[in-house]
Design a protein around this nucleic acid. Structure first.
Lengths: 207, 207, 207, 207
DNA sequence: CATGAATGAGGATTCATTCAT
DNA sequence: GATGAATGAATCCTCATTCAT
């Protein structure tokens, strides 16, 4: 039985290694251009082994997204209950996203890669699921925005639009960070993002 | 001679038809997943015909990006000289981007698709060129931001960060529009975007 | 009618130009690797024009071989009646081949290219015809050899073997000439060839 | 481990089978007209399998030439040291070539096919390599000829010309054998070849 | 006749997936 | 389970040939 346990432990580890390898490859190439062969090599397993752990390329990809999405949703829940003050909560939200992507820039890359595909009608369970999640996620952020509006901390703008704006800023800074200034920690951008989002770039026209 | 002219005209038209078809397919599938076959079908030409107009998939893609990028850069120049007032100029900038993407949402899709690839080292002339253009483009926006800062209309924030923020908001709203509420004209979003960017989402904390 | 005549003359000229172009291309690439496109370009005609003069690639090739083979057979006939002395006749034969190939090294190249295909069973009228011609040709040379033997000028060796040997030497020197020392006239090799063929390379062992 | 060994053994065998199949096809069609498909069928493998063993058509061809050329060069070395007597050595040389081609007429066919291509400027590593080898090979034969001349066994003719002549005769007889009288062993031709080369076809003009 | 655009069959190559060991 | 050889469908691309102008 102990042997069984070790086996189970090893199997789980291998699974993880494969997933991590897949993530690196998907991040570098995108789903379509990635090959099982390259993932196998990256994972230091044989091609055949991959099929002992996953059903195929789609499954691999899907699992990856799934896990990370669960992770991010979990973190989101913590954030959602982290404070009563809307501004603090939004700050936590931004920080959460930034550290999430900083920890795992490959995943951000993947999301960024495949995100646009969501707008495309498709038959894959995969894309459907991703789209669902995306909308749910945006919904969560919307709720935070709604709270902010209700609390009088945010302007009376449709929460969805506010959510869209915030997400846009975060993504842009993350992309920027990956593309150009990858050295400094991404979380350093939190203050600017918050200032931009909450107070805007303009010098207060004294109305 | 007239015959020659007609032929030339037809050839140009066919070229355009193929480019448009390619754009639709690239927008739907992304570069890697798109196939010449599908593009040919979409264009209602035979597979072989494609090669009379373009050297192959890469060339097709490249040409597409090239043309549109030239277009957008041209429009940008107009905007850059459109006004002395920074806020007006930024407004024109936002409007320009919104109408550009509204006119051609497929192109936005393509850009969104392939943009993340820019962060990945590659050997393709294509990616290099795209990255160059992207940075140049961002540089142009930076310059507008710089003017705004100098004129005292924008906060003393690094222009690059301002540019990143604005672009992020615009992209997010465009993506949103494509993903969900594709009916209303995208340009309708101009006021929100401007308000978010210039004045922020927060209710002016009376500082 | 005069117009008709000029037309006919022009047509014949064009035909010739195409054939010459085809010869150059076939010589450079071999039949299989040559393309109609390249031949057309070489001939400075459109691809389509080729089909007004020939039925296709095979026909072009076939015609080429045909014409040249007729030519060489004609010249052979002259040689066959050129002298009563076997050695002189053999000398004339060698000279004839050498100048034939010197005049038209492309044709030699083509022959050399496609010759080995003769040993392969095939369904093409083309190859059959070439093989037939080749054997007929060798037969002609055999007859000269036979005469030489009968006249006591050549050893009592099967004429076919003698013919094979002579042809082999000629081909080898021609190939050599093309491959390496293309400057000097090929016909300069006549004496060596004759000496080798008639007297051998060995220093007469005083038998 | 034994399993590994068997696998390795099988892989080597399959590789060989594929090479042999490729040889037959190249011999029948020539490089340009041969198709991977046909080679695969001849080898009784799937098309895809070919790429597990070779990089493609060129590689296949190249490997084939390489291996055989190494073989023939090895045999040549033996011959080169086989005797002090020039005539014997030349005899051995002829015999070596004849048995080499008799053992593997497909290879001769291939050589004969592609040889003329050598005279054509090209960019392929392949052709360069073949040409190099050919010249080196001829060089080796030249050396034997040179020895013969120095030893007073051969006439004072440029060794390269002597080599060319001998090779020409050998090739012609081999081609003849393949084309027409394939039944009798090719090596049977050794005496005639030697006699023709050393003593010529002419009846000794009593000089 | 000449042109060259269009076609489509054919060929090289890649890659997800299967399967015998 | 792990391996990697084998498969074959899918894909890019070429080129002989046709045909409208």
């Amino acid at each position: 039985m102990a042997a069984e346990t070790r086996r189970a432990r090893e199997k789980a580890m291998h699974r993880r290694e494969i997933l991590e390898a897949a993530k690196r490859v998907f991040a570098k190439k995108g789903f379509a251009a990635a090959t099982i062969d390259e993932i196998a090599q990256e994972a230091e397993f044989s091609k055949g082994a991959m099929y002992g752990y996953f059903e195929g390329k789609e499954d691999l990809f899907f699992t990856l997204i799934q896990e990370k999405s669960d992770d991010i949703e979990g973190r989101f829940m913590e954030v959602a209950e982290s404070s009563r003050d809307p501004e603090t909560k939004i700050g936590n939200l931004v920080e959460m996203y930034l550290s999430f992507f900083e920890e795992d820039r490959d995943f951000f890359q993947i999301i960024a890669f495949e995100h646009p595909r969501l707008g495309v009608k498709t038959h894959s369970r995969l894309a459907e699921n991703m789209k669902e999640r995306y909308i749910r996620n945006l919904g969560l952020i919307e709720k935070v925005m709604q709270e902010g509006v209700s609390a009088g901390a945010l302007k009376e703008i449709e929460p969805r639009l506010l959510a869209t704006g915030l997400v846009g800023i975060i993504h842009a800074f993350t992309a920027q960070w990956i593309l150009i200034d990858g050295k400094k920690p991404l979380t350093e951008r939190k203050p600017v993002i918050l200032e931009l989002f909450l107070d805007g770039a303009g010098v207060a026209a004294v109305t």
